[in-house]
Amino acid sequence: MSSNAADRTPPRPGFWTGDRVAGIALIVAAAALAFETRVLPLGSLGRPGPGYAPLLYAVILGVLGAGIAARRGGTPLGAIRWGEARHALMILLACGFAALAIERLGFRLTMLALVAFLLGVVERRPALPTALVSLGLSFGCYFVFWTLLRVPLPTGPFGL
């Protein structure tokens, strides 16, 4: 997309560019995956076994990762900003809670807590809109999807 990248001469990036880090991460992932395929029979070239394809893909991934890591130029690592990382972590935590809770607390209570947490704690919205939106979303979705559309959704204590 950024065809204007050619116009400006990039500042000399240090050794640790985004590509370098990503490439090395991919190599590590590929090595771990290749190691995990050890329990599967490899088969032969003419008769690939169940371990053949995963190992092949892992090797390809490793080679490509090396290619990415070896590439010159690219964004210096310091230029990648992580301003939203705290939010991202909070959202992931909230989703993790939802996964743990949905079949124990039921859909409505879980979503109520999820939305209330995101709005009230993470975004620091005022209490009234937070309460209204979280109640509306959790009970509204439940009404539309289970009551009207009969998509099975879990219920928790007190039938909530």
Partner: peptide, 14 residues
Amino acid sequence: QALATCAAFLLLPW
């Protein structure tokens, strides 16, 4: 049917 299920559902917790 949907109504009936819905009604049944509202009663179910009790």
